[in-house]
Nucleic acid binder design. Structure first.
Length: 421
DNA sequence: TCTGGGGTCCTAGGACCC
DNA sequence: TCTGGGGTCCTAGGACCC
């Protein structure tokens, strides 16, 4: 179930959609804490204990007084962490998101390494979104650091193509949080997303339909939200590098190469068409927890260690479900072998649950269906087919009445064993 | 020196039902 | 009786995004 912004109602206002993207969000939040790091190459990463320890030794001292020499550096990093965000100064060294920290350490050993602090980022995320809601209430949440906004009906949303409202948002967010953001405004989400990249950081860009050939077509296909490395490689192999080249292709030719759905979508995207709504509210689909081990583990030789981790993951997922108020009936596992190949297994239960032991039991069944000769580097647990916990009871009652006498009896017995939600 | 963690959506085949 | 088609659910894998 989801709520969307009103689609071009009985008015003639041109649709104006904004994409607002916080600039180097995690790094910027860290710089608010540690202003002494401003201008330096800083990397935020899935750091291991060493980093936390290095900084926790500083407890008691005001954070802004911690001398630079006390911050941990990338040099000598050992582990499996990757970069989540890098400051613009660090990016100069060729460091970027998702790069392994050990590789980044080679490129820029002097860079400062900070551990990720999601609690703090979520705090700032809520703060900037609340500020936005006061000004432009039709907001689609797209994760911790970006949102789409429907400007169409918002007072001032049409002035200068949306620039006035975009500027107001930027200014208010900066005044109240000290963080900068970039905004793109366009007739739809697809173009707004591309526009927000144009003048980063702290920029605004307005894109109209008439700008398609001059502003969008020269861009690489990869700039379209939804074209990733695989689709891009396939397009390249077909001799298509830019969005303009994609736009020249016949829709039937694209459908022949990419299938009905993707082919038609590529065609529309290249022509700047996108009628997807700004989604104001939506229900979660799944909840999961996964972890990469510090060293690869073997299902038999490291059984005890693996068992502890497995149970912890189930407990975390159960806790997350309970905290969010959901129950689910599809329990799944994911594992990744030492060669990085992943497999998943899942199982649908007869009833909804948010109970750690029930999840652990079902996940254990899934694990039995997977080959375990090879060493593992990752294990994950997932619960999907979610239902708001408050609806789960009624749901089960309705289902119950539709069942045969025999099935009702089976459920009765199960309930007696304390397993029915 | 291999490559995190939390998600969404799509595809595709088989089972099962109408 | 045979054939066909459509819809939905379940499962596995993969692309993509932040």
């Amino acid at each position: 179930m989801q709520t969307t912004a009103p689609q071009a109602a009985a008015n003639t206002l041109p649709r104006r959609v904004a994409h607002l993207d916080m600039d180097a969000f995690y790094a910027s939040v860290e710089l608010l804490r540690y202003p002494q790091l401003k201008g330096l190459p800083v990397v935020i990463g899935g750091a291991r204990r060493s980093v936390d320890e290095a900084l926790s030794a500083q407890t008691g001292r005001p954070l802004h007084n911690i001398p630079l020499s006390d911050f941990p550096r990338l040099k000598g990093y050992v582990g499996r962490g990757v970069i989540t965000t890098a400051t613009y100064a660090a990016r100069q060294f060729g460091i970027g998101s998702a790069m392994g920290l050990m590789k980044a350490a080679k490129l820029c050993p002097q860079a400062i390494l900070l551990p990720v602090d999601f609690t703090e980022y979520r705090r700032y995320s809520r703060a900037f979104k609340n500020i936005i809601l006061e000004i432009a209430p039709l907001m689609e949440d797209r994760g911790i650091d970006e949102v789409y906004l429907d400007f169409t009906q918002v007072p001032g949303g049409q002035r200068e193509g949306g620039r006035v409202l975009a500027r107001l948002l930027q200014k208010t967010i900066f005044q109240q949080t000290g963080l900068t953001c970039s905004v793109g405004v366009a007739p739809n989400k697809l173009l707004a997303k591309m526009a927000s990249e144009f003048n980063k950081p702290n920029g605004i860009a307005i894109v109209q339909e008439t700008d398609l050939a001059s502003l969008i077509w020269p861009l690489a296909c990869r700039k379209i939200n939804g074209i990733g490395p695989k689709a891009d490689a396939k397009l390249q192999s077909l001799g298509i590098a830019t969005i303009g080249e994609l736009a020249q292709k016949d829709v039937h030719w694209l459908i022949d190469h990419f299938g009905q759905k993707t082919g038609a979508w590529l065609y529309h995207a290249a022509h700047g068409h996108d009628d997807s709504p700004v989604v104001l509210e939506s229900e979660p689909v799944s909840v999961s927890r996964e972890t990469t081990f510090e060293r690869d583990l073997h299902a038999v030789r490291d059984k005890a260690e693996l068992g502890v981790i497995f149970t912890q993951l189930c407990e975390q997922v159960a806790h997350d479900l309970q905290r969010k108020g959901y129950v689910g009936k599809m329990i799944g596992i994911k594992l990744r072998y030492d060669n990085f190949k992943s497999v998943t297994r899942d199982q649908t239960l007869a009833h909804y649950t948010a109970d750690a032991q029930t999840i652990r039991q079902a996940a254990g069944q899934c694990l039995k269906r997977v080959p375990l000769q090879q060493k593992l580097r990752l294990l994950g647990v997932r619960v999907a087919s979610l239902l708001a916990a408050k609806d789960a009871v009624n749901y089960d009652q309705n289902r119950y009445l539709a069942l045969t006498k025999q099935a009702q009896e089976a459920i009765f017995l199960e309930a007696f064993e304390g397993q029915l939600f």
